[in-house]
Structure formats: structure tokens, C-alpha cells
Design a binder for these strands. Structure first.
Lengths: 335, 335
DNA sequence: TTGTATGCGTTATCAT
DNA sequence: ATGATAACGCATACAA
């Protein structure tokens, strides 16, 4: 490896016939530099192909200009075709790009991974930390916040940790979904709920319960974990226990997709016999058979908002403890 | 922000009653440290919650212990429910975690983004660079390689840049797919090809052409860009131009999925009237109507192999210029 | 407006 | 086996 020595401030300074300090000023856009000198320096920078050494810079500025996005899911689940995580990544990188910061991605599925994230983030190797989703009451966000490290979480954190978060309005979305089925005459509406150690799972279930309760309808519940597999199993259970059901609200499109198939295999027609509504509005939802009515959540926007909040926090501003994003019922053919 | 001063080597040294050098040795696992001293230092580290400052370390070691994964796609396409990119990310992070390195994710869809990536990577802010997919003949990988920066690309690079790459055996996969249809009696087999500025698109098309040619069958071609939308449009075109087609090989599952729907809308039964085979084996493939026969490519493994190659390269080893991963025909109901 | 001098927290070299 | 001490490349307070 003939790793050509990369030029330093020193080299540029020599070439331009000025001091290191002046070059540094030009590179960092200081206004107090005479035009001819600025030009000379700029030329020297270009000729030498100078690029600042970030390590050196961050050593003195105490900033790293990078932020971590932590995905505490098991690596195998983070990237199923559930589009939640990819969507968040996309939103985060858009906003980070605008701010000229780097995205350090950390999957923390295993305990070892979690520990690694803890070491890395508490070690202040990043200017801030974004959590993409929390399982149970993870103490890490709170720990970081207490250390004075900027943190923003997606989804209201379980337990009462005073960590700022951005979330979508699950309850409003679910309410709209269930109401829609009630309005079209369904009376035996079941739900395939999400995991009850995640806010999204908890809130979507509670939204369902209060809505059916308000309408004087019974609760028909089976728990899944947002995946297709769990959706199939849950649907089969519901069918066995409540053969007369005429509506299903699934807490994720993946589970709804599986429910669609399971219902068909059981000889039920959708939406004629059973109405089905999902949650997420993943791309596949428009291509299921029949196309899926579902609750859209602005997932890319979620990533963007989290990032904006974090950057403000890192800049020393104070921010709202909670930001809520709206959801929307997308009507297709399944309900 | 009461940013508690984080302890430095100096502080640990003072507490343990030794020199900075000794603490550094213990932290870095040097064997030349007496056991009692090592213990004292270890205790001091724990008590103070010391974590090394990576910037300072990398300033002297000339390593950053992080590698960049560049996705040169437009941000909007990188995370469609095409599982390719998420899969690669997953493979890369698994392997990186094992090597205790950080993943810096860079999307480079826009020209500005591309330039940003160039600056960042040529600036040696990472120990190596992985490219997740290339459009056309991107010069950046070659540039980096010439600068002595370790680079590994996914997919054979277009143009003849001598950059090491890992790819899946597109041709073998496509051949198996088309043969499968021929063997079951299809004689008018069309293809919905991928974009012709990407190797995956090019190779899958050429695999199709040679296979039908070998069988003395006609070429029926429409070009898409791997997305569902383009798949629908291409399928409609094929139907209009070749109403008698009895088989379709789509270069991506997303396009195959759209084709399935378009065929149904046109009143064709799959597989009775028309056989359909896709490529990728995304999770959705098992849930389409009918379930999709497709060519599975080991996408997570691709990410892992790329990473392993890169790490070897960064460690000064020399590596194979090309690594080819096998594909496999997964038979379901659509063909 | 520009230059000088200092320090950021490590690792590595060289003594001891 | 351990300790001084010199880099590493940069930003900035201060001096000019």
C-alpha cells in the first residue's frame, strides 16, 4: 500500500505562503481573511487536494460531526420487508445530509451488541444518539440523557424516562380504522395486536379496545409480533375461537397480509365475509389481494423529525419533550 | 448542558498511581504489564468510567476503525421494499460488528451527495469503502483504489476498473429460471428486464437471451427498472405486443409481483395461461397470489463477503479480484 | 487582518 | 516492566 502522504494544513500553508492559522480560517470560512490571501489559499488547497483530518479537528473542537442511529432490534428483524426501519434510516440520512453530519448505524440486537452501543455512545464518539425503536424499558436512552448526551427516541419510551421522543398518533389511526369497519356494519371485529413490550404494540391495542368498547362491541384479541408468521398464527387462532368474526384490524401490514391469505385459505372472502385493515401502509399494501385498507404512518417524516430535534438539542436549544405525527386511513378494497 | 468532563488517560493514571503509558498498555491489552498493576489500572478505569477518545487515538494510529457503506442510489429508491439494500446493510453490519468496526452509512443519490461521498472517503475518514451498487461506470471506486484506499464493490463494475467485487451468479440463476419454464412446455417466454445501466440488469437480460436462443425460442423483451410500477408498464407492453406469450421472467420480484397483478387484470391465469418467475426471493414472494417461483440470491451473505474482503484488504492482505455467490431456483406456484 | 503558541488525548519511541 | 516525551493535525486565544 503506497499510501501517499496526504497534505496537512502545514503543507497548504507553505504552498500559499501563509501561516497554518490563516489556512484554517479560510478552510472554515472565517470572514476575516483578505480576498487575495483567501484566493491563494483556496488555490493551494485545490492543487494539493487538501482535505481536513477529521480526527484532529474533532480532537480540538470536541465535536465529531456524526450521530448514531441505534436499532435495538435483533438484526434479523430490523430488515424484514417491514419498511419501518428503512424508512427511518432514509429520513434520518436526508436530514443529516442537509446538516453535513455523518450517520453511524448501530444494530444492537444481541446483548453484546447492546453493550457495544453503550460503550460507543457513552464514550462520546458521536454528537448525539437516535433510537429507532425500543423494546421494553431500555435504560440506555435515560443513561445517555443523564450524561448530557443529546438523545431522541422514536416512540414514547416505556417507563417514565424523561427522554424527548417523536411518535405517530397510533390511537387516532387505529380509531379511524376500527370506526371505518363499524360504520360499514361490522359487529364482530377482532384485532391481531403487536408485541406488548413495544409502545406501538401497546397503543394500537389500547386504541382498538377503547373503540370497540365505545361501540358496545366485544373484544376479540390475538397477539402477534408484527411479522407475517405471527400474523398467520394469530389469524388461525381468532378463526378457531371466533368463527363468526366479520372484521380484523391487524397492527401491522405484514400481519394483515398474512391474515388475508389465512382467511382465503379458510374459505372466507375479503371484504365480503371479513373486512381487514392493516397499519403502516407499506408499499406491498397496494398489491395484496385484495389491496389492503390500512393506516398510513409518515415513517420517513418520523426519521426527519427525530433528526431535526436531535440537532437542535445538540446545538444547545431546548426542545419539546414529545412530537406527535398524524396518521391517515388509506381506503382500498379490503375493508 | 452540564457536560461532565470525561476522564482521560491522565486521570486514570493519576488514580491508579502509574503513568499514562502504562494505562494505555492495559487498555490496549499489552502483555507486558505486571498483574497487580494491570488490576489497579482496570479498577481505576471502571471507577472513573473511562472510555478512550477515538479521535485522539485515530490521530496517532492513522486508523479510524470505521468503514463506509455507500449506496449510490437515489435515496427514494434505496429503501423501497426491494430487500436488496437492507439485506446488504444487515450482512455488512454483522461482519463489522464481529471486527469491532463502525458502519458509516452514506446515501449518494444526488450529485451533491456523490460529491460529498467523494470528499469524505478520499479524505481518509474511513479505513475502507464498500459500494452497494453501481449505476453506469461510476469512476469513484477506481479513484479510491488508486489512492490506496481499500474498496470493494457489490456487482461487477461496468467499464474495466480493476476494483475487487463480490457478485451473485446472475446468469446461472436466470438460466435455471428460463429452463424451468421451457421444461414445462412454455414456448413464448418474455422477460421484463432490469435497467441496462446496472450489471444486475444487464446480466439478467443476457442470461435470458442466451437461454431462449439456445432453445430456438424468440426474444420477447420489455425493459423496467426493478420497481413495481415499471413492472406493470412493461407487462402491459408485452401483452399488447405479444398476446400469445405463455411465460414471463421478471428480473426482480417487485416487477414479477406487478406482472402477476397485471396479468390477472388482463384475464390471464397464472400459471395456467402464463408462467411467471421472479428474481431475488424477497419475503413477499411467498405471499403473492399465487406464490412466486423465483431465483434466490444470497443477499445478506453478499454483504458479509464484501465486508470480509474489505477487511482483509485493509489488513494488507491481497484478495481475489472477483467472488461469485451461487443463486438458487425456488419453486412455488407461479411457474 | 495575520501570525505565534498552546493544547486536545492518544500511541509509540526510547530510556531506564 | 515502566516512565518520559515526542508526535499526530487542527483550532483558537492572544499578540502583533
Amino acid at each position: 500500500m503506497t499510501t501517499a502522504q496526504r497534505p496537512t494544513l502545514e503543507a497548504v500553508a507553505a504552498r500559499a505562503g501563509v501561516s497554518r492559522a490563516t489556512v484554517s480560517r479560510v478552510v472554515n470560512g472565517s470572514t476575516t481573511v483578505a480576498e487575495p490571501i483567501r484566493e491563494a489559499v483556496t488555490r493551494a488547497v485545490a492543487e494539493l487536494g487538501y482535505v481536513p483530518n477529521l480526527a484532529a479537528r474533532s480532537l480540538v473542537t470536541q465535536r465529531t460531526d456524526s450521530i448514531a442511529l441505534v436499532m435495538p432490534e435483533a438484526a434479523t428483524r430490523v430488515f424484514s420487508d417491514d419498511q419501518v426501519f428503512p424508512g427511518i434510516i432514509r429520513g434520518v440520512s436526508q436530514e443529516l445530509e442537509a446538516a453535513d453530519k455523518q450517520l453511524v448505524l448501530m444494530l444492537a440486537g444481541s446483548p453484546a451488541g447492546h453493550h457495544r452501543v453503550e460503550r460507543y455512545t457513552t464514550g462520546r464518539h458521536v454528537d448525539g444518539v437516535l433510537f429507532a425503536s425500543l423494546h421494553g424499558a431500555d435504560p440506555l436512552p435515560g443513561t445517555l440523557a443523564r450524561l448530557g448526551i443529546p438523545v431522541v427516541v422514536s416512540g414514547r419510551p416505556l417507563g417514565d424516562v424523561p427522554v424527548p421522543y417523536v411518535d405517530v398518533d397510533h390511537v387516532a389511526g387505529v380509531t379511524a380504522a376500527v370506526r371505518h369497519m363499524i360504520d360499514s356494519g361490522r359487529r364482530r371485529i377482532a384485532t391481531i395486536a403487536g408485541p406488548q413490550d413495544m409502545v406501538a404494540g401497546i397503543e394500537r391495542l389500547s386504541g382498538y379496545r377503547s373503540t370497540v368498547a365505545d361501540a358496545g362491541l366485544p373484544e376479540l384479541i390475538a397477539i402477534g409480533d408484527f411479522t407475517r408468521e405471527s400474523g398467520s398464527a394469530a389469524m388461525r387462532r381468532l378463526l378457531a375461537e371466533h368463527p363468526d368474526l366479520d372484521g380484523v384490524f391487524a397492527a401491522s401490514d405484514l400481519m394483515a397480509h398474512a391474515a388475508l391469505r389465512t382467511l382465503r385459505e379458510a374459505g372466507r372472502r375479503v371484504p365480503d365475509d371479513v373486512a381487514v385493515v392493516g397499519f403502516d401502509d407499506i408499499e406491498t399494501a397496494a398489491y395484496t389481494e385484495p389491496p389492503l385498507t390500512t393506516v398510513r404512518q409518515p415513517i420517513v417524516e418520523l426519521g426527519r423529525r427525530m433528526t431535526r430535534q436531535l440537532l437542535r438539542l445538540a446545538a444547545g436549544e431546548s426542545i419539546e419533550q414529545a412530537v406527535m405525527l398524524p396518521t391517515e386511513l388509506i381506503r382500498r378494497a379490503s375493508a
